[in-house]
Amino acid sequence: MWRIIRSEWVKLRRPAYLWVPLLITTVFTAGLTVANLLNAETTVSNDRNGPPQHLISDYTAAHGATIGIKIGGSLAMIIALVIFAAAVATEYQTGTIRNLLIREPRRVRLMLSRWVGLCTWAIVLVAVTVIAGLVAGVITASSRGFDTSAWFTGPGLRHLGAVTLYLWLGFCLFGSMGAILGILFKSPVAATGVSIAWLLIVENILGTVFPGVKDWLPGNVSGAVYSGGTDTLAFGPALGLITGYLVIAGGATLAWFSRSDITS
């Protein structure tokens, strides 16, 4: 497995797979953190048309450091989905999947190891998201005279650690959806398009028409994991449910992949 992960990282170090996503994530996370901190007030505004607003007391609390990070992470999750899908599906388009399978005919092992490699890539994405949000938060809070000492207390760091873990799980879950569709569609554009359409459109429609199924839909369940749980779906059940979905969908996809003809 380690050999395959090392091999995968040669490809993942390309600018389009590493520096570009990291730069976008940094700019987005830092930018939103700064904007939210600058927008923070002592009381909630009555202007319902304005952007979502946080109170200064939220930012000075132990969990204050993670507000911007979680907002930035929502975009990074889409980036993770795109990168996982592209990494898997591009091999079909370039024909390099043949090179891999001739040298590693154990197809399930190959694909699972590549997935682990992509999950290690997600660690870098999480680290950048957290660092960008934290640095931007400290600087902006300081400029506004907010006290951020609670961020670095035991509870603050524990919360930051938990959010970091949730983010990484969220990235891996959304990425796994991209990877599964990448294997099935053999096209990064199709895999990404279908994934995003499902997550942003289909799940919203289904959730609106059938509110009872909302907490069963994979995107919403992944979102609950990424958020550390929601009001209607706790972290533990959400993680269990999405793991079940992935085992079934991933297992079926791998079973198909292990027997499929590679003609590209």
Binding site: R3, R6, V10, K11, T94, T96, R98, N99, R103, P105
Partner: peptide, 29 residues
């Protein structure tokens, strides 16, 4: 297959990687 070398249906490589890095993908694999 570990004892077989193959070039089938034309050379397939990642265009945005150098020749050496393309081969490193395989040597490390």
């Amino acid at each position: 297959l570990p004892k077989v070398g193959a070039l089938i249906e034309g050379p397939a490589f990642t265009p945005s990687l150098s020749a050496r890095k393309n081969l490193l993908v395989l040597t490390r694999l």
